[in-house]
């Protein structure tokens, strides 16, 4: 198994995605191609050396909420889409030490 597949498996675990062996191999190959293209960025590292990283198109405008209680949704609404529930709780399988 190549190192790249190892990395795909590590990332898939972080992202909690179960992948088949075929998917791991396919994604390793495809990501190699995509990242090869993306590495154009790093070939000319000087391009953006001094640029300020941009997370948002607009600057801060402080859109606050006042501290007011607006009421909550009914538990019926909240739980309407739940795959599994018990009483007013969402229910999940047991958490085992990983």
């Amino acid at each position: 198994m190549s190192i790249k597949e190892d990395k795909i498996k590590y990332v898939a675990r972080l992202a909690r995605l179960k992948l088949t062996d075929e998917e791991v191999a396919l994604f390793a190959r495809q990501l190699d191609g995509i990242l090869g293209y993306v590495d154009k960025l790093n070939e000319r590292l000087d391009v953006a050396k001094d640029a300020v990283p941009m997370s948002h198109p607009h600057a801060a405008s402080n859109p606050f909420r006042e501290d007011e209680v607006r009421g909550s949704a009914s538990s019926e609404t909240v739980l309407a889409n739940a795959p599994q529930k018990k009483g007013d709780f969402f229910k999940v399988p047991r958490i085992i030490e990983e």
Partner: peptide, 24 residues
């Protein structure tokens, strides 16, 4: 010590029946 949650208008009151102080 706020009356409503950090990012929504649900109450910060302690307790309440399960999932009753929640919103989308």
């Amino acid at each position: 010590k706020t009356s409503s949650k950090m990012f929504c208008g649900c109450t910060t009151e302690f307790g309440g029946s399960p999932n009753s102080h929640t919103c989308p």
